[in-house]
Design a protein around this nucleic acid. Structure first.
Lengths: 245, 245
DNA sequence: CGTAACGTTGAAAAGTTTCAACGGATGTGG
DNA sequence: CCACATCCGTTGAAACTTTTCAACGTTACG
């Protein structure tokens, strides 16, 4: 997923600006073709670090899309609103994920931290200038966009055709996989977002989400632990329900 | 949307390989920064033209993603299937649109022509090699991906939160806008896809789509003309319903 | 200690789906 | 040329899933 966070961290560790970040970034470092040192410096020069408190808005739908972010710590939800307040959360983002990549004048969605979050902030204008002579960077962004697009298509299948139970199962499997990809344990899976956010992500109501959770509990498929974590007792059933995502 | 089709058409007109195509491509030519002539030649060298009959599959979900396509004429639907046959159409594509752009080994979706269709076919391996020294090309692809992503997010809002009536209204407005963008009349809007396809695109059943059509007719919002066209009698109401897409 | 935020549960209501039937258009073969 | 089958869209009625409305318990916080 990430490597901006990686580069910047690497630089900043050397320059002593920030403390080393999670092992996730380090892991990604070895996976994603990194830039050469000179390029790394150039990237960090147009970057600054910002923090977002739990529940604070990072940007709104109609804000001018002047910046691109890369999450260092925490979690973010991205959503679209209808005039009457109906909401669809289009994604949850975690360390390493990009935020605000668009070719429009304004972000067409809002972003809000769902836990204390640190982000690398890039000026979009400068980033685009940088892109002109850093093809590796552009290639990487294209790969990210393509990956996001595939995820969006999965989500369309979920929203258009899956039952409540299947949606929740898919969601848990997704979170579990994401956690493992980030080097964290995949099984007691963390749920940093509230029921309302889950509902808006799955196209359901909060009540249906709650009811479906207890249904999965009764089935012996999951267990809800304290600290907003879910133990996936029967991963096979869950994956079956999810339709193997 | 397009410019691959443009370039290729331009070249081919000169070389006499194919007849000039729709004015759409020409129009796009002036809009999207074109490549220089030398680059144009290089692009056309890795391209071939293929045709797809109405209803024929262009590629399946699990096919190796060896080619990228650009639509010249016709219309294509892109969809994902669940093991039990449930289907979600994630998009309808028209002349100028790209098809098969992915960074995976296999397309993760299927593509099928919904009317007689001509496509430009590119070897993906060669295209990627070409990308290495044609930054303009890569930048353009990134823009396309970003645009598609925005559309996908709109669709997630539709599928997650809109009523049947709102979904159909959104769909009609979308088609109308797409038609105008392609230089065709936006108002009696063409519906080249069947009810089943509309249903799978909107996350509804064919019956609900049919009922909602007649509801919109009764409301005086639309009129169904022969030849699978819909006259948008009250565009304002329709846009209001759609939530201004 | 009261209040607010969040999650759970129940019962009624609503929207959509499922099942079934019908009509029109198209195409095929006798 | 007509009988017949097929495909597609429409409509009705019942069934079902999810939503809505309402109440309650818990936890956190001032």
């Amino acid at each position: 997923m990430s490597w901006f966070a990686v580069e910047t961290q690497e630089r900043n560790v050397k320059t002593g600006l920030v403390r080393p970040c999670s092992d996730c970034a380090v892991r990604e470092f070895s996976v994603c073709a990194p830039l050469d040192p000179v390029e790394q410096v150039r990237v960090t020069q147009i970057m600054s670090q910002v923090e977002a408190a739990d529940g604070s808005t990072i940007f709104g739908e109609s804000d001018p899309a002047d910046h691109v972010f890369n999450i260092t710590t925490g979690a973010v939800k991205v959503y679209k609103l209808m005039p009457d307040g109906r909401r669809a959360i289009t994604g949850f983002l975690f360390p390493g994920d990009f935020l605000g990549l668009t070719h429009r004048e304004s972000y067409a969605y809002s972003a809000e931290a769902i836990s204390p979050t640190k982000l690398c902030k890039f000026s979009r204008a400068k980033l685009e200038k940088l892109l002109d002579d850093m093809p590796k960077l552009e290639r990487r962004l294209l790969g990210l966009a393509s990956h996001e697009l595939a995820a969006a298509q999965d989500q369309m299948l979920l929203l258009g055709r899956k039952t409540a139970k299947e949606r929740l199962a898919s969601f848990l499997v997704l979170l579990s996989n994401a956690a493992r990809r980030h080097g964290k344990p995949g099984n007691p899976v963390d749920l940093p977002m509230g029921r309302n956010d889950i509902a808006d992500y799955l196209g359901l109501t909060i009540e249906t989400v709650s009811r479906t959770f207890t249904q999965l509990k009764r089935d012996g498929t999951i267990q809800l632990l304290d600290g907003n974590r879910a133990k996936l007792t029967n991963l096979e059933d869950l994956q079956e329900l999810a339709g193997v995502m």
